[in-house]
């Protein structure tokens, strides 16, 4: 029911754009608040719709998946949460899907954050993954199957010091358990003892710093999930195999959810994302149509 109404409304929105186009081209552009309403509708209405969007998994996402598939059960994965709540809509779905995958494949997860908010967002992701029935049945134990090392200040200098010893920067975990008393960390000295590093990043410090220090200096194997703002900048690393796989923005999240078969928010939101892009594209076209008519008149 809600879905039908939303679809009808969305069609109406599309039709009314024609009027806006007419107005703009004839030199009477609408106020920006009208534009605001359009974008709000384009994002909100699809949330009520149940259309399946055909998500296509791209090679960058596949590469991450392949790298993960190579890990044997029991492998240790270091996941760094380097983002804050504003970027959560893009990165949290990746985090949740990654956690679900890791727990279902018996990977041991070590969580940390270079951003102060990171460990708390990690807790949220773990909470959500634990709600999954299959994972709940495993009765995973904190400190043995996963651990949250918490946050440390120092940005890229934290990675630098971790190259010698994790313990130096994380003398206790987020729950204030001493490093040496955490069974999972018993034989983990530095990057050479973790099998894979996964970094969720929305800026600095983030993937760029991890590649520069953990990968190029200390030889870690790494994959990353980035906000779409940052993703284009790390493509050169991907080509040079400094990165094994990249999830970029909401579409990257949706693709990852598809390939690991853990549909979540990324898949739900991709429809809104699609309509939002459509509106932006249409607005650029309308604006430019007006621009060129104007220019022609002047000539």
């Amino acid at each position: 029911m809600a879905s039908t109404i939303a679809t009808i409304l969305l069609i109406l929105v599309g039709v009314s754009l024609l009027y806006i186009a007419y107005r703009t081209i004839t030199g009477r552009p609408v106020e920006r608040r009208i534009v605001f309403i359009y974008i709000a509708l384009a994002v909100a209405l699809p949330l009520f719709m149940t259309l399946p969007a055909p998500v296509q998994v791209t090679p960058d996402v596949e590469r991450l998946y392949d790298a993960l598939e190579e890990l044997r059960p029991g492998s240790k994965v270091l996941v760094s949460f380097d983002y804050d709540p504003p970027s959560a809509p893009e990165l949290q779905p990746m985090a949740v899907a990654f956690m679900k995958y890791a727990f279902k494949h018996d990977l041991r997860v070590i969580v940390m954050g270079l951003w102060p908010q990171g460990p708390q967002l990690a807790n949220l992701a773990i909470e959500e993954a634990m709600a999954d029935q299959e994972i709940a049945a495993k009765n995973l134990e904190y400190g043995v199957d996963y651990v949250n090392l918490g946050f440390q200040s120092g940005n890229e200098f934290v990675i630098q010091a971790m190259g010698t010893q994790f313990k130096r920067m994380f003398p206790q975990d987020d729950r204030r358990i001493p490093y040496d008393s955490i069974p999972l960390m018993a034989n983990v000295t530095n990057f050479s003892n973790v099998d894979f590093v996964f970094n969720l990043s929305s800026g600095k410090p983030g993937t760029i710093e991890w590649v520069q220090i953990a990968v190029d200096r200390f030889g870690a194997t790494m994959g990353a999930g980035n906000t779409a703002v940052q993703a284009p900048q790390v493509y050169p690393y991907l080509r040079a195999k400094q990165l094994h796989g990249l999830l970029g923005g909401m579409s990257g999240a949706a693709e990852f959810e598809k390939i690991v078969e853990e549909p979540g928010d990324g898949t739900t939101f991709i429809l809104s994302q699609m309509f939002a892009h459509a509106i932006v594209i249409l607005f650029v076209i309308i604006g430019n149509a007006a621009f060129f008519t104007e220019r022609r008149k002047q000539e």
């Binding site: 534009v35 504003p86 607005f283 604006g287």
Partner: peptide, 28 residues
Amino acid sequence: VYTPLTSTMFAMLAFFVASASYRAFRAR
């Protein structure tokens, strides 16, 4: 408290992108 405030602050950028695409991004 913290999450809704900071997230919404940045979410406003979506509106500004939209209005800029209508009013400013030109194939000049």
